[in-house]
Design a protein around this nucleic acid. Structure first.
Lengths: 343, 343
DNA sequence: TTGTAAGCGTTATCAC
DNA sequence: GTGATAACGCTTACAA
C-alpha cells in the first residue's frame, strides 16, 4: 500500500500540515523539520497522490489536445510540439480524436463526460463557426482554438492565415508560368472554415492574375488524406483540359497527387506542378520533394500553451488571436530544386 | 459553479446515496425515485466529478501510452489504434514521449511523478532488458510492453517476432537474387532488444543462404528516422563493393534510403532494392512504393488493451505474451510491382 | 429500497 | 513556524 501524507506525519512525528508544507515547497519551514520530514518521505518512499491534490485544488495538470486523427502527420507533428511545450510548464497532454465525427467533436467541446479531467482544451476543429457559437452555451472550460482564422473575440485563437497561405501557394505556381491551376481540398457541402479560406486564397490569386477560377478545377476532398489526393488527381488528369499545376490544401493530399501523376505516366513538375500546405517531413524526402507552405508548428504549440496557461491562471483574460507565420518553401515539385538532406 | 451530488439530492429531496445509485446505474431504484432524480440532474445540468470518483474508487479511467516520439508514423498509427481501442472499453489515453531519453523512460516506468494518474501503462520501450528488471523494484502498476520480443514472465507483452520479421525481409531480397545485402538500424553501442533481434534475423537469413554477413554492411541508426536512413545509405553507396539491396529496420529509415539512392543517381529497385519494416501508409505512396514487413497494428492495439484491462481487473493475472502476426508486403522497391491505390 | 455517515489523500483555514 | 481540523465530491458499509 502506498504511503500517505498521514503516514509520513506519523513517522516524522509532525503534523500533516508540516509534511504538506515540505512536499509543496512552502517557504517557512525550519531546516530541522524539513530534514526530519524528508527522511520519513525517503524511508516510506512517499509520493503525493495527484488525484487527491486535484480534488482539493481543482487543478489536474492535464490538457486535452483534440484533433481529427493523430496519425495524420501534420497533427502528429503538432502533437509532438504541444506535448513538449506542455511538459516544459508542467502539464501533461491527453489526446482525443474526433475522427471527423461532428457529434464526437461537439461532445468533446461541451465536455460531455469529462467533467474536471482537464484544466484546458486545445482544439483543432473541423467544426463550423455556427456550431462553435452554440458551444458557448456549455459550461466554460479554458479553450484555445488551433488553426482557425475567423476570430469572434470569444475564444483564444492560434490562427493560420489560411487565405494568405493558399494565395501564396497559388501565386508561386503562377510565377513559374502555370496557367491551368487546379485545387484539391474544397468541401463545398460543409461549412468548414479552413477549406473555405484556402479556396478564397486560391481564387484571389487567380483573379489577381486576371484568370477566372474554373469550377471543375476545384476538387473536393473529405479527409485530406493521401487517398483523397490520389483520387482527386486522377479525376483531374482525365479532364480534356488537363491542369498543369495543382494546389493541394494539405501536404498529405499532395503526396497522393504526386503518386497519381506518376501512375498516369506524367512527370512532376514538368507536366504537372504540385504544391501543398503544412510542410510535413515526408515532403522533404518524397520524389519529387514537395513544395509547400510551411506552417510554424513549434510556434503554434508554444503560443497555444502560453494562451491556455494564461487563461487557466485567469479565466477573465480577454481572448486574443495570434497568427502563426507561414513561409513558402520551394522544392522539386514546382521548380526542380534539390532539397538539402545531406547532414 | 458546477452542481454536486448533494445539490441534486437537495433538489430532488432524496439522499445522496440515491442520487449516486441513479448516476452509477444501480439496479434497485424505484422508477419514481429515478425519475425524480433524473429531473433534478437535468435541471441542474449535473455531471459527476471524475476526480472525486477516482479518489474514492482508485480508478482513473486513463491509460498512459509511452512512445519515443508521437510523430514517428509507426507510433502515430499505433497511437491511433490504441486510442480507438481504449475508447471502446471506456478508457482515455494519455501520451507520453520519452524522446529517446533513458532517464525519462525510466522515470515514466517507475511512475516518478505520476502516482495514481493512470490505471495502467502501455509501454513501447527502447529501454534495455537489464534496466527493465530494475524497474521491477518500483511500485507496481499494470504494465503492458509493446513490441519487445524477449519474455521473462514478469510483464505482459504484445510482441513482434523481430527476428522472424527481419529474416523474412532479408529472405525476400535473397529470393529476388540479391547478393550484396546491407542492413540499416543496428545499434551496436546499446543493449536494445529490437535492433539486436532484427540484426539476428538478418544474419540468420544470410547464413541460411550460405553467405557471411559483412561487418561493414551493417549500418547503425540512432533514431530510425528518415535522416538516419538517408545518411546511412549515402555511406553504403560510397563503398567500393556497393550493396544491391538494403534491409531497413523501419519504414522511415527506408524512406530516407530511397531518397538517397535517387540522389546518388541510382535506381530502386534496379540498382539497389530496399525493404522496410512497419508498413506505414507513407510507403504505399512513395516512389517507388515500399516493400515492407507489415505489422498488424490494430491487433497490437486491441491485444494491448485486452491485456491491460485484464490486469487492471485482476493484478494477479499471470503475465502472458502474445505475438502479433506479420506479413511480407512486396511492392515496387524490391520487385517493381505497382501498388493498388485506385479506389 | 433508501438514508446516514465514514472515508479516499490532499490543501487551506484557523488557531496557538 | 506548526498543529488540529474542515472541506473537495464521490462511493459504500451499515442502518433503518
Amino acid at each position: 500500500m502506498a504511503a500517505t501524507l498521514r503516514d509520513v506525519a506519523l513517522r516524522a512525528k509532525v503534523s500533516v500540515r508540516t509534511v504538506s508544507n515540505v512536499v509543496s515547497g512552502y517557504e517557512h519551514v525550519s531546516a530541522q523539520m524539513r530534514a526530519r520530514v524528508e527522511r520519513a518521505i525517503e524511508e516510506l518512499d512517499y509520493r503525493p497522490n495527484p488525484v487527491a491534490r486535484t480534488l482539493r485544488t481543482g487543478r489536474t495538470g492535464v490538457l486535452a489536445l483534440v484533433v481529427p486523427e493523430i496519425d495524420v502527420p501534420y497533427f502528429a507533428e503538432l502533437a509532438r510540439e504541444v506535448i513538449t511545450a506542455a511538459a516544459d510548464v508542467g502539464y501533461r497532454v491527453m489526446i482525443d480524436q474526433t475522427g471527423h465525427d461532428h457529434d464526437r467533436e461537439r461532445e468533446l467541446l461541451t465536455g460531455g463526460d469529462r467533467g474536471m479531467l482537464f484544466d484546458g482544451v486545445l482544439f483543432s476543429p473541423l467544426v463550423t463557426r455556427a456550431e462553435l457559437l452554440a458551444m458557448q452555451e456549455s459550461r466554460s472550460m479554458p479553450l484555445v482554438l488551433l488553426g482557425e482564422h475567423e476570430f469572434d473575440g470569444r475564444y483564444d485563437h492560434v490562427a493560420i492565415d489560411n487565405v494568405q497561405a493558399a494565395h501564396d501557394a497559388t501565386a508561386h505556381l503562377l510565377a513559374i508560368g502555370r496557367t491551368r491551376i487546379a485545387a484539391i481540398g474544397a468541401q463545398p457541402q460543409e461549412d468548414y472554415a479552413t477549406p473555405q479560406q484556402r479556396t478564397a486564397g486560391y481564387e484571389r490569386a487567380l483573379r489577381a492574375a486576371g484568370m477566372t477560377p474554373a469550377e471543375d478545377y476545384l476538387r473536393p476532398a473529405v479527409h485530406y488524406s493521401r487517398a483523397d489526393g490520389y483520387q482527386a488527381t486522377r479525376e483531374l488528369l482525365e479532364r480534356a483540359e488537363r491542369p498543369d499545376a495543382i494546389v493541394c490544401y494539405s501536404d498529405l493530399l499532395a503526396m497522393g497527387a504526386l503518386r497519381a501523376i506518376y501512375d498516369a505516366g506524367l512527370r512532376a513538375p514538368e507536366d504537372v506542378a504540385v504544391i501543398g500546405v503544412d510542410d510535413i517531413e515526408e515532403g522533404r524526402y518524397s520524389r519529387p520533394s514537395l513544395s509547400t507552405v510551411s506552417l510554424d508548428t513549434p510556434f503554434i504549440a508554444r503560443e497555444a500553451i502560453a494562451r491556455i496557461t494564461a487563461r487557466i491562471a485567469d479565466p477573465e483574460t480577454p481572448a486574443v488571436q495570434v497568427t502563426a507565420p507561414h513561409t513558402l518553401v520551394v522544392r522539386e515539385s514546382t521548380e526542380g530544386r534539390s532539397p538539402d538532406l545531406g547532414r
